[in-house]
Simulated scan of single mutants.
Amino acid sequence: MTQQTVSLPSSSQAQLRQGRIVRGVRSVIRHLILALLAGIWLVPIVWLVATSFSTDRGINVRRFFPAGYTLDNYANIMFHPDSVAQFPRWFVNTFVVACFTCVISTCFVLMVAYALSCCRFKGRRLLQNLSVIVNLFPGVLAMIAVYFVLKYLNLTNSYAGLIMVYAGSSGLGYLICKGFFDTTPVSLREAAKLDGASDARIFFQVVLPMSKPILVYTIISSFMIPWTDFVMAKMILNSGVSADWTVAIGLFNMLQRTLINNYFALFCAGGVLVSVPISILFIIMQKFYVAGITAGADKG
């Protein structure tokens, strides 16, 4: 059999070429806009990293890149703390609070999400609606009430009170995790139920092994909140003792008018060091993190 080629009219070919040109121009414009936005987003980060290696101790707004580079800022902030910059102690304080908060918050979120997704009980729909309504209000609205409650319980200026604040309402952030649990096969849970498994056993041996992406997402999110928070930490840890501060409070203190000219380069070095653990964690867990977000958004 002979193949026959169909030739398009010249007008149709011109329209096809014009369509390809238009699509190519639109693609170039989109990429240029994205590159511009990425550049704007990266400028402060590049400036922060470059200034962390600066030989100037204070802030210099006359040039973008420093005149000289040195590693003394990193060495001083890590190995030579003083009365103002006690970064190793702040790092340990923040890490301890973040770890305890991560464990407690992850347990709360997973338990609430599993109960509302896989269990059927009276008032389930009402609890879901109430939790959504509560999440509409910013957490800072309750700061004053939270502070006076902690003060009445003598939990201000303590890491226990700070952990309680971070983990107390974490269960309300169950929506993404519940959306992921909604995608798990119901037949597996029903089969385990017929074999005599309890709800706890189904949760730990059936649901959780299939939920690694959302588990990673929940762990990272729970760890990030105390690691980067300033407002709640500043409100609760208000004794003025710098050794008890978290990293966010300590670095912010370096920006005082009387200190910025001597500690701004150390502030930039501390900002870079704080971002390193989180960056490494995101790079390692990126696949599971993205999968947890996308899968949890399918249902809600």
Score class of each variant (00 low, 15 high):
Ile293Arg: 07
Ile21Val: 12
Val247Met: 14
Gln18Met: 08
Ser187Met: 11
Ile40Pro: 00
Gly292Asn: 05
Leu16Gln: 08
Val49Lys: 07
Gln3Gly: 10
Val43Gly: 00
Val96Asn: 00
Leu110Gly: 00
Thr294Pro: 09
Ala192Gly: 15
Lys287Met: 01
Leu32Pro: 05
Asp199Asn: 13
Ser27Gly: 13
Met224Asp: 07
Ala98Gly: 04
Tyr217Gln: 08
Val84Tyr: 09
Phe121Ala: 00
Leu162Gln: 03
Ile59Asn: 09
Ile202His: 01
Ser170Glu: 03
Asp244Ser: 11
Leu153Val: 10
Trp41Asp: 03
Ile144Gln: 02
Leu255Gln: 13
Phe252Leu: 11
Gln13Arg: 15
Ile77Glu: 08
Ile284Asp: 03
Asn129Thr: 04
Val241Ile: 14
Arg20Asp: 06
Val103Thr: 05
Leu32Cys: 14
Ile202Leu: 06
Val43Glu: 04
Ile21Arg: 13
Gly196Asn: 05
Ile260Gly: 05
Ala160Gln: 10
Ile219Pro: 01
Asp229Ser: 09
Val92Cys: 01
Asp72His: 13
Val216Lys: 03
Ser27Trp: 15
Ala75Ile: 15
Ser279Leu: 15
Val207Leu: 12
Ser52Trp: 02
Val97Met: 02
Ile220Gly: 00
Ile144Trp: 06
Asn76Trp: 09
Leu237Met: 12
Thr228Ala: 09
Met111Gly: 00
Gly196Glu: 05
Asn253Leu: 09
Phe204Met: 10
Tyr217Trp: 13
Thr2His: 14
Val247Gly: 00
Arg89Val: 13
Leu34Glu: 05
Arg89Thr: 15
Val186Pro: 01
Asp199Arg: 14
Trp245Cys: 02
Arg125Val: 10
Cys268Pro: 06
Tyr217Arg: 06
Leu153His: 10
Gly139Lys: 10
Asp298Met: 14
Ala265His: 05
Leu116Glu: 00
Phe180Lys: 01
Thr258Leu: 12
Ala115Val: 14
Val231Met: 13
Gly270Ser: 08
Val241Gln: 10
Val276Thr: 06
Ile249Arg: 01
Val290Leu: 11
Ala248Arg: 10
Tyr263Phe: 13
Val272Asp: 02
Phe180Leu: 01
Ala200Leu: 15
Thr55Asn: 13
Leu251Ala: 08
Leu141Arg: 09
Thr101Tyr: 02
Ser117Gly: 05
Ser221Asn: 11
Val146Thr: 15
Gly196Thr: 05
Ser239Met: 08
Arg23Lys: 13
Val272Phe: 15
Ala191Tyr: 06
Thr294Leu: 14
Ser198Thr: 14
Gly179Ala: 03
Lys287Gln: 11
Pro213Trp: 06
Thr51Ala: 12
Ile249Pro: 04
Pro277Lys: 10
Ser158Asn: 12
Arg125Gly: 07
Phe137Asn: 05
Asp244Tyr: 12
Pro66His: 04
Asn238Phe: 09
Ala297Pro: 07
Thr51Phe: 04
Gly240Tyr: 05
Leu42Asp: 03
Gly296Cys: 04
Leu136Tyr: 11
Met224Arg: 14
Arg17Phe: 06
Ile219Phe: 07
